[in-house]
Amino acid sequence: MEESTESISIEKAKQDKAAFGQLFQQYYTFLYRYLFKLTMNKEMAEDLLQETMIRAYMNLPKFRYQSKFSTWLMAIATRLYLDEQRKRKRDSKRQQQLTDNEKRKMKWELEQGNMDWSLHMDLFASLSIETRTLILLRHYYGYSLEEISIMTKLRKGTVKSRIHYALKKIREEWSDEAR
């Protein structure tokens, strides 16, 4: 969407719920795809998308064009997801079990949609939720470290080191598997 057209739509959406609905519709697929990659779970992606939509609507008057609208939406979705996972993390045993269950569910869901569960997916899924989020934002969506730092509310140095060590670990495992 062109920037000026987009800002007109955003200004309209700030005052009118229907206009917000139309605006959000344009980003629906983009956001769903992002959340699916992040959660690797359709139900969770849908729930988060709905929560993101509500948060976005409530906070839209605070949107000051400091980033793209899509980036702003992604930041809301990312924080919601990470906060949710941090709450769950309190019980580490439960967390481990959930991860295994989620992995099985992810495989099943991908197979249902004619998508392959590749070795890359397996390696990606073995990472912690936070690291997965950082790698996805940095290497698939191409965000800068500063942008990711703002989106995830983590320090720039933390973002950089987590991505570095996770990629190092993955590269080692990937080269072992490739041999």
Binding site: K17, A18, F20, G21, Q25, Q50, M53, I54, Y57
Partner: peptide
């Protein structure tokens, strides 16, 4: 979407 927003 509007309905979801209202209830949410």
């Amino acid at each position: 979407i509007m309905q979801q927003i209202s209830s949410g």
